[in-house]
């Protein structure tokens, strides 16, 4: 896409979001939307100011992000490693593939009871849950990426005497990077969604807890605020991911959109 086209698209997207909030505000002001159970944007603005001035909000956001980062780093890191092994060794693939395929379709939330039994209700159970969530999309995409590397690329590397022990890091890893980054982005957004759900079930801090806590206090406006906040943070972190990927991992590529991301 050319720059003017991209800028046009960004403008339209901004206008759409603003238009949505304006409609919502108008609906609330005219009484078409019941403000008791669904706060208006203006209400959210007021809540944001009180929440931000209290400082507790930063703790909730920070705690949630730290949990996702820790779990994601463990799960995705392990997944890249396992995926590379599966993609480059037929024997490892044959052994691990059935196990991955059995565990993969299990909704991550089904692990919550076990996570609590194994790790208690402290941080480690949440980190475990995120690690499990992030693992599968990353392992599958990494494995597919490595298995799908053009054979002549590997032959070219061999014709330049790349030793077998270095093939993985010098050729397979960069060649599979477009697929790996796709897996990372999917893994990240899933991790974030699962974390909020987990925090709603068993936690005393974090964005999920913010929502359940507000619900228990009958503060439905804060519930709506929490929902909008979670959406915004998810969008923002994905945007950061894209920038990081485009700049550091796929700088040699046509860009993340062309990679099917």
């Amino acid at each position: 896409m050319n720059t003017t086209g991209a800028r046009r698209e960004t403008l339209i997207q901004f206008a759409a979001v603003i238009g949505f909030f304006v409609l919502w505000q108008v609906g609330a002001a005219t009484g078409w939307v019941n403000r008791d159970i669904f706060a208006s944007p203006a209400d959210l603005g007021r809540i944001a100011i009180t929440q931000l001035s209290g400082g507790a909000l930063f703790v909730h956001i920070g705690v949630s992000l730290l949990r996702v980062l820790a779990g994601f780093a463990i799960g995705a890191g392990l997944a890249v490693f396992v995926g590379l092994a599966m993609g480059s060794s037929e024997r490892i693939r044959v052994i691990l593939n059935p196990i991955v395929e059995i565990l993969r379709p299990i909704p991550p939330l089904a692990w919550i009871p076990l996570a609590i039994i194994w790790f208690g209700i402290e941080e480690s159970s949440k980190v475990f849950l995120i690690a499990v969530t992030a693992f599968f999309p990353v392992v599958v995409n990494t494995y597919k990426g490595v298995a799908g590397i053009d054979r002549t690329l590997l032959r070219a590397a061999r014709s330049f005497d790349v030793p077998a022990s270095r093939m993985l890091t010098r050729v397979a890893l960069p060649a599979a990077m477009p697929d790996i980054t796709t897996g990372l982005r999917i893994g990240w957004s899933l991790s974030f969604a699962v974390l909020v759900a987990a925090e709603m079930i068993a936690a005393n801090s974090g964005l999920g807890f913010l929502i359940t806590d507000a619900m228990n206090q009958g503060r439905f406006d804060v519930v709506v605020f929490g929902i909008v906040l979670i959406g915004s943070i998810s969008v923002a972190t994905d945007a950061i991911w894209r920038k990081v990927i485009d700049r550091y991992l796929l700088f040699w590529h046509r860009g993340i959109e062309a990679a099917g991301g």
Binding site: T152, R155, A157, R158, S159, F160, D161, A175
Partner: peptide, 21 residues
């Protein structure tokens, strides 16, 4: 004995490493 060791190859699909300049 195998590939490499000074046997230069230009492939039909070129097989340039896309992540390198």
């Amino acid at each position: 004995e195998g590939p490499g060791k000074g046997k230069g190859v230009v492939f039909q699909n070129l097989a340039l490493f896309p992540w390198l300049t």
